[in-house]
Design a protein around this nucleic acid. Sequence first.
DNA 1: GTATCTGCAAACCCTTTGCAATAAG
DNA 2: CTTATTGCAAAGGGTTTGCAGATAC
Lengths: 150, 150
Amino acid sequence: MGKKSELQVFREYLQRHGLRYTQEREQIIKTIFSTHDHFDVDTLYLTMRQKGIRISKASIYRIMPLLIDAELIQDVFFEAGRVYYEHTYGHEPHCHLRCIECGKIEEFVEPRLKDIERDLAERFGYKVLKSNLEVRGFCPECREKFLGRK
Amino acid sequence: MGKKSELQVFREYLQRHGLRYTQEREQIIKTIFSTHDHFDVDTLYLTMRQKGIRISKASIYRIMPLLIDAELIQDVFFEAGRVYYEHTYGHEPHCHLRCIECGKIEEFVEPRLKDIERDLAERFGYKVLKSNLEVRGFCPECREKFLGRK
DNA sequence: GTATCTGCAAACCCTTTGCAATAAG
DNA sequence: CTTATTGCAAAGGGTTTGCAGATAC
């Protein structure tokens, strides 16, 4: 049971939905999965242009929902009116610890969330699909700078 | 040590910052704390107009950051390009369980988050300020409708 | 060939901002 | 009185959309 490539997953998703596997869609997937960073549409657009890939923002905006629906990426957080994404296919579900001062992000896996989800499903009768835990604070450096060492 | 009213807290906050306690600010606080619902700026604006309170959206947009800074309200989630808020003063910190189909929201208190926060602070050296856990899924009704009873 | 997809530019919509009038202290 | 605040309307800025030409299949 070898793991399918993200391209393969996307291709099958498109086929299943009667959609087409275009140059632009292939390039977006490739670009997104070529780094581990969180990104927004604007960043993705600029990155692709820098690589010499011709694409419009409109197309990116139209393709993002497909990638989410195909469970290849996920929106992680919102800031300054922008949506930030990360690619999730092939990664263990994880949470984010963000410094509100410098924006640095640490990822961590928290097994206790599974228990919490299970308890919630039972208590409220929900079918739990996913959970998102975001912790905010000061990273060690900013903490020192702003809270005076302690 | 009686609990201060939200008005009192806001008044003191404003004073402390050299700001003025205006009609509009008083009315916003009163309106927000008169229900337990989550709200966005537009809803708040319409609610106030319905009650016959004269206020502009611009003022609401300008006052929201003050309420957040005074720790009276908090932004809870973003959806369809909008920010949703809830009043938090006087409430125990809680998390949200949302139905992605009908939008219903259940609130729950999760004591295990405190442990998680403590562990994170130690592991990454962060000063943790707050955490936000949002769980998404299908509520009992929507689950039945869409997933066929099971 | 046919229906989907793309790029462009305009439209949208929530939010922010400049400015003159108003009100708090 | 002095300075902060409000309301209005215009500007911003991210996202969506209509349409004609391009492209997957």
